[in-house]
Nucleic acid binder design. Structure first.
Lengths: 207, 207
DNA sequence: CTGCTAAGTTATCGGTGTCAAGATAGTCGC
DNA sequence: GCGACTATCTTGACACCGATAACTTAGCAG
């Protein structure tokens, strides 16, 4: 309905989002100003309110778009890392970290406080299957006997938290003091932290 | 020098920090206003600038105080969890998550964007030994043969990221859909994710 | 052509961070 | 005790921000 006939501006909503994203990219989410976004798009300061209820709504729209891009990257990582399921799990997680390192602006939008507000549940477009993909990868690892058995939800939450913490640590906080390529380092951390299945049957049989 | 003789107000700096913390606690870091902090302390809007260069400086001071409290809790967890080094490591990590769940205000201050700015390196008071403590716990686990060998830094960063991600996931994001006590759940996740040493000597010796 | 509604405008409000200049109150040297 | 000095706080202002109300314009349906 709103995306068909460009009345005055020609899809202003899109222009606002693009401009806002550019501003976040170059000066950070912290100093994003709705007025500046508007004036950069060549419209008055009140115009955005015909497309977004709030400044928060704009940020949420961008955040969900960022989540979509993340989902796309993780999907690509899943399909292009065949064979060993553990390698696939690592690849999925690594894609997350790489995304946060390459696009800290999008990563910041994903974890913007506006995304945690209850209003965020309303305008969520497609519910994104990132979570299902991660659980699937964990289950496949377990079926292959490569990862410790147990509730896959627990493991998946652990992996998700690990990857998210790694991303924030390396992107937002400084990636100083670690050697070489941060993304390669993150991958090695991931590889170590995957909860591998213990190869012995009982723990230390007294022989 | 500034903490000795209360000139007019009687340690206004402290009053501002306490008031600001109270405001963050009840309405969130997002809507913290320097003016409101000042007027709540019974002082004009410009008064805080004699004690903090910026609003960001106030937030950083609070953030470092929160880091100190976290450090205190992790230190307590370390000393009061003797015996099994893995249990100690889990206890330290669990203390982090519990802290973030109990005091989301302090957790938010710790990861405030102002803490990542380069200016944060200046006014850091005591450099906090949380990191050293974590590395120590990891090394002890390795010496006991309970945790996979390898660079302890890598493992410690993994644990730190895991615990940080877990805290953010459970605190900022909703802790919905997980069963029972969130902190107990986090502890179980931690326990699963600790990179245990494989109990076999070589990986599958062809016998 | 006549409504009707979406889209954009101007004007304004209350609020915010920050600074400059002045007033005030303690401390120190004499 | 007294003047100089400096730290502290106030007033007043500036520029900006998010948000709303009232008005104008543009495109479409009948």
């Amino acid at each position: 309905m709103a995306d068909k006939h460009p009345y005055h501006h020609g899809d202003l909503r899109r222009a606002l989002m693009d401009g806002a994203l550019a501003l976040v990219r170059e000066r950070g989410l912290q100093s994003l100003s709705l007025r500046e976004v508007a004036s950069q798009a060549g419209v008055s300061a009140a115009a955005p309110y015909h497309h977004f209820a709030d400044k928060a709504a704009l940020v949420r729209a961008l955040g969900f778009e960022a989540l979509g891009e993340l989902d796309r990257r993780m999907a690509f990582a899943e399909t292009s890392a065949p064979g060993d399921p553990v390698e696939r799990l690592v690849a999925i997680g690594s894609a997350y970290v790489r995304f946060a390192l390459e696009r800290p602006d999008l990563a910041a939008l994903m974890r913007a406080p506006e995304m945690a507000e209850p209003a965020a549940a309303q305008d969520q477009p497609e519910h994104g299957e990132s979570w299902e993909r991660l659980v699937r990868a964990v289950v496949e690892c377990q079926q292959a006997g490569a990862v410790a058995p147990g509730d896959p939800m627990t493991l998946a939450i652990g992996m998700w938290a690990l990857v998210q913490g790694l991303a924030e640590l390396l992107a937002s906080r400084g990636a100083d003091g670690i050697p070489g390529d941060p993304s390669a380092f993150a991958e090695s951390v991931l590889r170590v932290m995957v909860p591998r299945a213990t190869h012995t049957a009982p723990p230390a049989p007294i022989l």
